[in-house]
Amino acid sequence: MTPLRLAVLLLAIAAAAIWQVSVIPQSLMQMTVGPVLAPAVVVGGLAVLALLYGVSAWRGRQVDESHVPGQEPLPGSQRRLASLLGGGVAFMALVAPLGFVLPATLCGMGVARAFDAPLGLKSAGVCGAIATVFWLVFAQLLGIGLGPALRWPF
């Protein structure tokens, strides 16, 4: 992928992130720092970096290293990417019907697998604990609408 194409991809991801931040519901509590501030600052910073990279690529200052001998991708890179993206897609597809904790656990397991962690009970337990603590802190303590932890069919 050429640096200019990468810059366009980064800007498209930044645009999607800006859109996602814009649809975060406001907290019911009146507070100076709401649930939108931190994501907006992070996404704004990433958008500025993507824009700066795009300008640098446009000016020809970024080197296309995809064809440099001796710099081939690591073995299994396609599987790692599929695990990473699969975890995110699973979260987005399952969060509405199943609640937050199970899809977030699956997403965490996909990310862990992308970093070569073995899938098993230990991975599921750690990811499930992280997802549960995240839900408790943000949904219960801070009042951010993440939905129910689990949706029951009855």
Rank of each mutant, 00 (worst) to 15 (best):
G70H: 09
L51V: 10
A112Y: 04
G125A: 13
L136W: 15
D116R: 15
F91V: 05
A47V: 02
R5F: 11
S56R: 15
H67R: 15
V55A: 14
S83M: 15
I130C: 11
F138Q: 06
G60D: 11
P73K: 10
P3M: 06
S123L: 09
V111Q: 01
E65K: 13
P39W: 05
T132S: 15
L150M: 11
Q78M: 13
Q140C: 09
L150G: 00
G145D: 12
V137F: 12
L106H: 02
L141I: 14
L46D: 00
W152I: 13
G147K: 07
G87C: 10
V111P: 00
P103M: 08
L106F: 09
H67I: 04
I130P: 01
L52Y: 05
C107L: 08
D116I: 10
F115Q: 11
A139V: 04
V133W: 07
Q30I: 10
S27F: 03
P73C: 11
A38C: 00
F134G: 00
L102T: 07
Y53Q: 07
L74E: 15
P39C: 06
G145C: 05
P75I: 08
P97C: 04
M1F: 12
P153F: 08
V43R: 00
Q71E: 13
L102Y: 03
A57L: 08
G128I: 04
V36Q: 14
L150V: 14
M92T: 10
F115E: 10
T2W: 04
G54Y: 00
T105Y: 02
A117Q: 14
P3H: 06
W135K: 01
L46C: 10
